[in-house]
């Protein structure tokens, strides 16, 4: 099945990103396709390039970048990002920044859209 993922909360403050991350891993292991992960609201902070948690703690930004290497498309909302300072210079990868139309695209092309 094809899954679209919407992340509405930032890293660390909420468990949302952690649950989503484990969900995505399990979905891929079960042979499903992740059509994309859309970061909205405070969710855009998950892609802040300067996240630097203590070394003995999980680095959410890096875990996500690893997912990206496995072919998962990450999309940071340009409007929500700008409002919060997640822009070309501060986002992990400039190519990830895109418009809200991408969220609707995920709803259209995925069998299931899941909000975390």
């Amino acid at each position: 099945m094809k899954f679209g993922i919407l992340i509405k909360e930032g890293p660390y403050m909420h468990q949302a990103m952690d649950t989503a991350y484990n969900f995505i891993l399990a979905a891929m292991e079960s042979g499903h396709e992740i059509k994309g992960v859309f970061f909205y609201n405070d969710g855009v902070y998950n892609r802040c390039a300067t996240l630097e948690p203590p070394r003995d703690e999980r680095n959410i930004m890096k875990l996500l970048s690893e997912l990206e290497l496995k072919g998962v498309r990450l999309i940071v909302c340009v409007a929500a990002g700008k409002r919060r300072g997640i822009v070309n210079q501060t986002v992990c990868k400039v190519e990830e920044i895109s418009g809200l139309g991408q969220l609707l695209e995920l709803c259209i092309t995925s069998d299931r859209t899941i909000t975390f």
Partner: peptide
């Protein structure tokens, strides 16, 4: 989590 995925399917 795999069970979670299954429920979503």
């Amino acid at each position: 989590y795999k069970g979670f995925v299954e429920k979503v399917t």
